[in-house]
Each structure stands twice: as C-alpha cells, then as structure tokens.
Design a protein around this nucleic acid. Structure first.
Lengths: 226, 226
DNA sequence: TGAATAGTGTCTTTCAGACAATATGCC
DNA sequence: GGCATATTGTCTGAAAGACACTATTCA
C-alpha cells in the first residue's frame, strides 16, 4: 500500500467481472455469450459480465451475473484471472476479473435457454468474433478447464446429480477432443473414490441399462488444488 | 459488459497491486515486507504494493513496484489472485491484484537489502501481524509456491544463474519443510532435462567441489502450466 | 436372436520412493 | 590419511496405458 492515501486524489479504473459459463450439451462444450447492442463493439458477441458494485465482493458480483444470465445458483465458480491491459476497452480504463463457471445443462434448461436472440449458447470450439479481449479470456478459460479436468475431479460439475460413467467419459472426450479407453477411464475414475453408484439405472433404453452414479459429498470438496 | 455505459456514472473502487516477493537466504524462505507509517494499520508490516496507474497494465504496475522495492528486473513474476472483499480496507473500496515474484538473493543483495528499518525480509514461516488481509494473501502465495515447485520447474528462479544440485535441493527442502533423498532428487531433476552442467565447479571449499549447473534456456519457459 | 450399449481383467511400461557405498578435493 | 561433501544404481510397488471379450436389456 501507498504511504499517503486520499481516495479522491487518483483517477480510478472501472472494475467489472466477466464470466465464462460452460456447459455440455449435444456432445459439445458450450459457452454462454450475450450480444452487445451499444458501442463499442455493437452487435458483437461478448462474455456476460458487469460492473462490480461498491458493496459486493468479486465473487458476489460474479454470482449475481451468473444468476441473472442463467437462473442457476450453487454451481461451480472459480476466479480465473484478472485482465488489465489499459487498452482493452477503447472507452476508458476497465479492469476485469474473469470467473469461470460450470453448470449442468439439465439444471438450467428451464430458464435461460428459452431466452431469445441476445443470449445464446455457442460451441466453445467455434465462437464468433468477440468484443474486447474476450477471445483471449475464453482461450485462457479453456486452458484452465482442460487442466482442471486432468488433475482434479471437476468434470462432475458439468453433469446432473446422477449420471452414468459413459456420460462422464463423454464429457472428458468432448473437452479433450480425443477418445479415451473405456476400461482405463472407469478404473481411474472409480479409484479416486469420489463417486458412488446409486441403486438406480437408466430406464427405457433399448439395450442394457447403465448404473447411475453420484458424487460422494465428502468433507469439503476436494477440487481444491493450487 | 453492461449494455449502457457512462464512465462517470458509477462510483469506482481503487485498484492496487500487492506483491509477494520471495527469496531464499540463510536456509530460510524470506518474504519482503514494508512498514506502514500512516493509518490505517500504522506501524504494521504489509506487503509492498501501490495503486495501478491509469496508463499501465497490471503486470507493469507489479514490475514497477518490484523494481522500486528491490532494484531487480527480469525476475519471475506471476499473477496470483485478486482480492476484492469490500471490507478489506477500512477506508474505502480497494481491490487488489496480488502478484508473486521469485528472486535470487545473490541478484539483489547489492541494493534493497541495505535499506533500513521500513523495508525488511522476514521468514515466510514467521511473519509479524500484517495489515489488511495481507496474511491471507501471503498464505495463498505460499500454497501456490509449494504447488508450483512440485509440478513445475520454478524452483530455479530462487537461485543465481549457476548453482549446485545440493543448493537446489536445499531450496526444495526449505519450502516443503522436509528432507528429500539426494539420489531421488537428482534423478528427478536431471530427468526433466531443464538444466545442464557447466564446466565449472565450486571453488575453495575444503572438500570435494560440486559441479555448477545452469538452466537450459529452451523455447519459451516451460513453467507454463495452468 | 439380434441390436446396442454396459461392464470387466491382464500384461507391460513407467515413475516414485526406499536405500548405502564410493569418489574427490583440501588440509 | 582424515575430513567433508559429491556422486552414483538397484530394487520394489503403484499407477497409467494398451488391449478384447462377455453381459444385459429390449424389440
């Protein structure tokens, strides 16, 4: 901290949060974008976000935006990185704290997906030109997502509460963009001891039904690394 | 981003950077602190830091602070986390972007270490009460440091350009607070293929001299994970 | 009984960890 | 030669990866 301080003495940047909201749907990784209807970057798609209010924490701001856009609470949310290049917004100095969120499609389809043209899910592998430096932010989020998937158990967060191992494997395959061996995948996931089979199975499928699994809710989420 | 924007319409938070500067000296992990001489937290020790100027990026701000406090450039610097609790500063809303830096004692002892009472190195394992939420920030930095040391090659950054394997092992032992097996440590480090032996050895020691190693400067630092 | 997906085991290779004797330079 | 530290290899257990067949349900 500076030695002398006068809050009014310095010109201050604006601070926003932007959220990268991922979900999996139709065998694809999706990201939620909103269409801008004012300059700059009018008619460009952008990450959802907004100004941080003076009385809310950064995480509260991110959660607020998340609820506004998707109607879901209690999802996985983590701070990603803070982007502060002085030229990233052509109007004025804006520093943005990026968060990334993982939601299961099943949990949110009731609400946000029924919105119309100005809020839409895009394939994370094929997004339109984005406003500001949002492309860079998205790419950073993809890196973090892959990394987390490899070294933590975060993948569950993209699925509903009960899921089959095949569904889970699919999530991994989608995000890593490569096929995985079924036996090795199951061995590894189960050896982590973080999910348990329920007594239920999938129903009304014209083939052998699969067991449904759910997370063990253990002492504190073990997602914490780093 | 918000749909409508008027830079003057919103009250804005102040934005600072704070830096956790680590070094290793006397077989201890040290962190640089500065003593505050104005309220709030007058006479408390705090992390070095300051306001982000309107025309500089966050990283530039962090580098500027780093040079001001230590006189060193070209050190390892990475963004740590952004702390934005609305109550973290009792005066006004201050959001701080924390960076952490690793410097080798040998590279900086010329300058900053000769400063007097208000800038000092403390053992990272035994710091005084800190101003604001700086204790929390420091703890987070320690976690990140341990993590990075385990999964990347970042440890080299705490040593001078040429070093012995024993010195390097010492760094790891200090930070992990436990002893490591010499043979396994050397096997692992050398298998990474990131350092190479020079033709030099330590001199004027009253025992067998050790080979000096240096980093291979490869295509881009391989420290990038996550 | 055929279609479709679920579920399962072995072998090999690689890496981490335990463990102790020899080598070298200086005095 | 004695002291102090440097340097080096083997064995064992665990985990990751390659690989193919049997089981179950429904139509």
């Amino acid at each position: 901290m500076e030695k002398n301080y006068d809050a009014s003495k310095f010109e201050k940047p604006s601070v926003t949060v932007d959220i990268i909201i991922f979900t999996v749907k139709n065998e694809d990784l999706k990201v939620l974008l909103v269409k801008r209807n004012v300059p700059p970057f009018e008619n460009f798609w952008a990450l959802p976000g907004g100004f941080v209010k003076m009385t809310e924490s950064l995480e509260e701001a991110a959660k607020r935006e998340l609820v506004e856009e998707t109607g879901v609470k209690d999802v996985y949310l983590e701070q990603l990185y803070t982007f502060g290049n002085p030229k990233r917004d052509p109007r004025t100095r804006v520093i943005t704290v990026a968060y990334f969120a993982l939601v299961s499609w099943e949990n949110l389809k009731l609400k946000a997906s029924t919105d119309v043209s100005d809020v839409q899910w895009f394939s994370a592998f094929d997004v339109p030109k984005l406003a500001f430096d949002h492309k860079e932010i998205l790419e950073y989020a993809m890196k973090r997502l892959r990394w987390k998937l490899e070294y933590t158990t975060i993948g569950f967060k993209l699925l509903p509460g009960k899921f089959t191992l095949t569904q889970l494997q699919k999530v991994y395959e989608i995000i890593f963009h490569k096929n995985l061996d079924k036996r090795n995948f199951r061995k590894k996931i189960l050896s982590l001891g973080l999910i348990e089979s329920t007594k239920e199975t999938t129903e009304k499928v014209s083939h052998r039904p699969a067991k449904l699994y759910s997370f063990k809710k253990k002492i504190g989420d073990i997602v914490e690394i780093l």
